[in-house]
Write a protein that binds this DNA or RNA. Sequence first.
DNA 1: GCAAGGTC
Length: 931
Amino acid sequence: MHLIIAEKNISAKRIAQILAGDEKVKTTKDGSVFTYSFDNRTVVGLKGHVVEVDFEPGYANWRSTTHTPRTLIDAGTVKKPTEKKIVNLIQKLAKKADLVTIATDYDTEGELIGKEAYELVRAVNPDVRVNRARFSAITPAEIRAAFENPVELDFDLAAAGEARQTVDLMWGAALTRFLSLAARRGGRDILSVGRVQSPTLAMIVDREREIENFVPQTYWVLSLTTEKDRTTFEARHTTGRFTDRDAAFTAKERTKEPLVVTEVKEGQKVDRAPTPFDTTTFIVAAARLGFSAANAMRIAEGLYMNGYISYPRTDNTVYPGSLNLNGILETLKGGVFDKDVAWVQQNRRSKPTRGKKESTDHPPIHPTAAATREVLGEEQWKVYELVVRRFLATLSPDAKWATTRYTFDASGETYRAAGGRLIEAGWRRVYPYSEAKETILPAIGQGEKLPIREVKLEEKETQPPARYSQSRLIQVMEELGLGTKSTRHEVIGKLISRRYVEGNPLRPTLVGRAVIDALDNHAATITEPEMTRTLEEHMQLIKQSRRSRDDVIHESRQMLHQVFDNLEAHESEIGNEIMEQTAEERTVGSCPVCGRDLRIRHSGASQFIGCNGYPECRFNISLPGTAWGRAIRTDETCEKHNLAHIRLIKKGARPWDLGCPLCNHISSNIEALYLMPSMTDDLLQRLHEQHIYTVSDIAGMPPEELAEALGIGIEEARGLAGEAEDALEVLRRRSELRKLVRKIVPPRKGRSHAKIFKSLLDEGIGDLHALSQAEVATLKKAGIPETAANELLDEARRLSGERALREAGVPAVSLKKYLEAGISRPEDLCYLPIPYLAGKTGINPETVHKHVDLVCRHLGRPTPPKITRQAIERGRKELLEIPGLGEATLQRLHLAGVYNAETLLEADPEMVSSITGIPKARIHDYIGHLK
DNA sequence: GCAAGGTC
């Protein structure tokens, strides 16, 4: 069997289709992995890398005293499978193979992926022949040629990739651990460092510093307006920017008629058709349509997977000769592009445009099939159309402009006006994404004199450089060689998720700056694009067999050791600097009570804003729990309280902007404060002036302090504190009710728990007790479905009964026994006969009587008389002597209060029958027997 | 828990 291993499933499928020719390809699904078979060949796709390098076991603990971050430099590495199903399948197939062809992508990383597959094959089949097919595009011609002339795996090329893997891992992991430990940051807050991410972050930080340090310069621009044939137009002074104010004003004063045309220059300009899309130029073009880099790539990948466009991750800007451009044009005919395609076919340029970069991995991004807006949907269509139109543009002739330039003299001051007119639209007919802005000037002859309608002197300021947009950053990363076509947009995502940068355009956060500062000062190598360049040079040498992989890694290890010499000598200094710089990220503003810093604090699932002066100053602002998202500070500030706004961020959820935390704190506590009977608008204002915002603030304050703060008497303050305590109790009960509702009632569209809870409150149901007495109909009106309403009522009755029993003083051990026997309502204890209660729970009747007494007093009802254990035992014997009366009947009689001969004789048979369900006739029989 | 590189 001939096993062919491709880089990914879709390649495997298409390679199989091409090689099979007319033969049918058999698709088999093994677990979740597809294989494609024909003749005696089987093609299987990897998923890129299916193994990963990691340190050998023993380095998992970051805080190990023996395996410190530095020891990672010399730690051994292992390759471990990340895609177990694929690895297993490859090895299963490899055992049966007599030839294996590696058909991964034609680039360094592809060669390494191929070598990984080779090693998996070798591990189970040491002798099988393994060769390599190389192709730049999955087209019939290329694929057939590649398989007709297979070559050998290039182990040097793969070794270059391995060197990169090892170097990246050891630098990244060692520095990440070192920095995170020094700054005492763990979990979600680790400080990551890497060959690509750190220089990228450094660019953003540097740009921000440039902007901050920018000193604007004032300059002046001088222009005039003139007219010919009733067309007015502008001419600018040939000194584009006057930096000297006096010179500008003098020039303006001197500008006088006559305005004489001294030179007329007409020409033509070629406006070159754009070059084929590689990933970067595609992302930049998509950004102009409003797509973020990640979004553009996501959509392009979708279009690729569905066969509409070619592979979107490519560095190539030159169509390979094997690509059938005419065929693609034919494919696009008939749809909305029909006219454009026809035009391109008629006006085709001799050779398609070509960019500067030519590579072997994939062709430039181009359409591969026709599609319609209806099938794709708006977003995908926009991206697809962009790719189609770009493709058409690369086959279209250049555009041509006619240019005109007039030079004027106004009493010694020279002015110039430039015009441009599109004479041949060329590619612009099919690629309307960049506007062709024409400036049409009237025809004027040399020596002509024109009037001056207006002379305008504008004062302007030089502007700081712009922040990087995502697409601009990707462009610059490419220029510097940072990252690859597949990873550049992901690197930006990584910087955002590490909270190093935010916003669009991108701005660094305090943590981002602190990390770059620390690295710049002590490990500058990793923040410079130079490192990538050197690594690439070394990889080049490995590919050419001029250096070995191990030699390159060894040199890198030594450099990293030197870096660590410096880092370890300054560990605490580095850590302190980062911690100091980042303390500000948690600081929301200053404490309104004492003026010290207010900081966001986290403890487990709860978070709040606390004063740095704690415990002397206890001022704090509550925040929603971390389940709603982790609180971070934003750049917006509340004008009223001078505090930074808070945002709650949660993975996979839209961020929740809370706004000013104090405004939020105040408004969410007002309703609770009005639960206090003495609360008035005036009192509320006085409390707020003293920065007392919550009921628990009042309840927790010593009355003396409260009295002083409000300028009231101590008794009045005590009264307020008492009211606050009561309000707290109401709130506590409400939250208990809320919890139960949330637990039992399933949330539904349009009926949030908050809404249900509000309707319940409106119905006067504010705690479990009130709920336990409610009607099902009321609950249904509040939006609770009937089954849930019944369950809710049962649960509320049980819970509130339990509470009442506890409050009445029934000890916990006994309470448990009552509950287990299904007795949870206090009324049950008052009305059910003691013998029955004792029998059901196994509690001593005397003790039961004590409980019954407690509960009856609590409910304000009379306590039934005591019945002793002996009395019950005696009565039991008496009753069991009656023929036909057994243990079961006895228990039922207990329920009706009948526990001995006497009570049976006194009982009303009708009543006993209705309570116990024993036929009346039989009760008469029992009584008759006794008589 | 760490990188960067594939792919989804």
